Every structure is written in C-alpha cells, then in structure tokens.
Simulated scan of single mutants.
Amino acid sequence: MAELVRRQHVDAYVGYHAFGLQESDDADLPVPFPDDFDFDVFLGAHPGRLDITSGGHTHTAAVGVEVWDGPPPEQDPAGWDERAETGLHVHQR
C-alpha cells in the first residue's frame, strides 16, 4: 500500500482563470508557464509543469499538494466540482 511522503498547502494566485505548478527553475522547462496553456481542460500536464484552470477569473486559491510513494488510495469524488489526475516528475534539489 502506498504511503504519503509529504503534504503541503499553498495559496496560489489565479489570473485569467489559470495557474500553474512548475519546477522552481523555469530554465529547465521546455515550455514555461503560461506557454501552451489549454483553457479547455481542467488539468493540463507538460514536462515539469501542471496547468490548472479555475472557474474564477482572478482570486487566490487554496491548493493542497500530496506526494505519494505509489498510487494513492481511491477517494470519493462526490464533493468535487471537477476532478483530474496526472503525474508530475520534478528534479529533487
């Protein structure tokens, strides 16, 4: 069974219905945020970067990020308006 390695909560600034999570050194990215952002999907993935589309235009979103050492346990999606999953590989510093 997979174990939770780390959990972090951050406030993310949302501008024009979008925000992203990416490598801290964007020089390592082939496509830095917001290039190639797809507003037609809730969650978009690029190498070293995740794009998230929000229903609100400009606001601060509370974001929870979890790192697991394997596939996390299934969750009940009933309380969510939108749900998507993807993987993200980043360089350890």
Rank of each mutant, 00 (worst) to 15 (best):
L50I: 14
R83Q: 13
W80G: 00
G70C: 00
F33C: 00
V65S: 00
A27W: 07
P77N: 15
V41W: 15
H17K: 08
G55S: 06
W80C: 01
G15A: 07
R49V: 03
G70T: 02
F19W: 08
P71Y: 09
T60A: 01
G44C: 13
E82R: 15
R6V: 06
A12M: 14
V90I: 11
I52F: 13
Q22Y: 04
W80D: 07
R6W: 04
S24P: 00
L43Y: 14
L43T: 14
V67T: 08
F19T: 04
D26Y: 04
P73T: 04
P72L: 10
G56E: 07
T86R: 00
P34C: 10
V5F: 03
F42T: 12
D26R: 00
A84H: 08
E85P: 02
E23M: 08
D36C: 01
E74A: 10
Q8Y: 06
G55C: 10
R6A: 07
L43E: 05
D28L: 12
D81G: 09
S24N: 02
G20T: 11
F37H: 05
G48M: 15
P47E: 12
Q92S: 09
P77Y: 04
Q92V: 14
D69C: 09
A27G: 05
E3D: 10
R93Q: 10
R93W: 01
G44E: 15
G20S: 11
L50H: 09
R7C: 12
M1V: 13
T53V: 12
